[in-house]
Design a protein around this nucleic acid. Structure first.
Lengths: 197, 197
DNA sequence: AACGATACGGACCGACGGTCCGCTTTGCAA
DNA sequence: TTGCAAAGCGGACCGTCGGTCCGTATCGTT
């Protein structure tokens, strides 16, 4: 309805901006020494173009983030178990959180940029709602868990970008160790009692 | 050694700034519509004074935060159990996290300001290290918990200011409910098997 | 009283996110 | 091919904010 196909140059510029921003975020130390002017310059584009295409800084970061995240969301909604649907809830929760952790490790700066976008919290972003709903739904199928809603929030908090950055960076915790730690922690939440049914 | 007693007006101004900033942070919607100029004006002081006393914005917020936090740290290090030393680790972990949650509920805007101080993450702040060490130490005495270090980080992440804000604000979760949720979640981490010894 | 040390305060600066508007490009249609 | 309106471009420009600087006022000591 309200769909209007963009002009060719607009599409090209949008892509150029995304690519440039991506590269800049990878190379930067802290996310906010990538300025909008930097991105525009690196993309060979005026600032006006950049802001028209993405609205504001947050919009640009969100667009980048969603683009990177898409394969994972695809794998979760339509891929094979244990990530995809069909796996028993506990295993799938483990798998989803692990995937999320790996994603943040692979996109540290970008995730950091998104979550530390001053002003609005990460909890306003659309994708957060999706992850939370998914986790909550699965957690509610775990017997004995009183409150899936809060548990979902808390588990997601365990893979927040700045925590991951803190551990992977200054603390120098290796990737596999972090994954194991997270899996252990999550396992406890899912039911520390190893016996069952 | 490097201690020099401050001049009387300096001390008075410092106090005025702290009080003014405190009031402004309580009344504000988002932490960054309290500007340094606002604080200076509200305190009846020039910007120069403000920056000389606290270094920068982060310094001011940290000073405020630590001041507010002091009673709780006191209660933890020297008060009666279960918050103070002497309580068995699981109960004390519960008590500490509950105290922390209540603190963030009572100081939402301030905590938010501190943790969203763009640039450096919350993990650089001194008090974070203190809480983490305390929790880790206690968690390591809980049997079956493989990694107290990560668990401590993850539990602290569950009471992060913006999560608390998200739940208490937009989601309108009542205080007591949040406390119960956190306690339940923490209990699971500590050992979901309620039976035992 | 007088004088050095200390602190004050607001004009000033540089940076950044975001806007505006005259000019260029695009793509449709005659 | 040419003409033309709409869509898009880009960089000068703006307001705001954190932070600095330095001439002036205050303190407290002798």
């Amino acid at each position: 309805m309200t769909e209007r196909k963009p002009r060719k140059d607009a599409a090209r510029n949008r892509a150029a901006v995304l690519a440039a921003a991506d590269a800049l975020f990878v190379r930067c130390e802290r996310p906010d020494d990538v300025t909008m002017a930097d991105v525009a310059a690196a993309a060979g584009v005026g600032k006006g173009t950049l802001f028209r295409a993405f609205g504001d800084r947050t919009g640009l970061i969100k667009a980048l983030y969603e683009a990177r995240l898409e394969p994972i969301e695809e794998a979760v909604t339509a891929g094979p178990p244990p990530l995809g649907p069909g796996a028993p809830p506990p295993q799938r929760v483990l798998a989803v959180l692990d995937a999320l952790l790996c994603f943040k490790l692979d996109n540290r700066r970008l995730a950091l940029a998104l979550e530390s976008t001053g002003g609005d919290s990460p909890y306003g972003a659309a994708h957060y709602g999706r992850w939370h709903t998914l986790l909550r739904t699965m957690l509610e199928q775990v017997p004995g868990l009183a409150d899936g809603d809060f548990a979902a929030h808390a588990l997601l908090a365990a893979v927040r970008a700045d925590l991951v950055e803190h551990l992977a960076g200054p603390q120098d915790v290796p990737r596999e160790r972090m994954r194991a730690q997270l899996a252990d922690f999550t396992g406890r939440v899912l039911g520390a009692a190893p016996a069952g049914t």
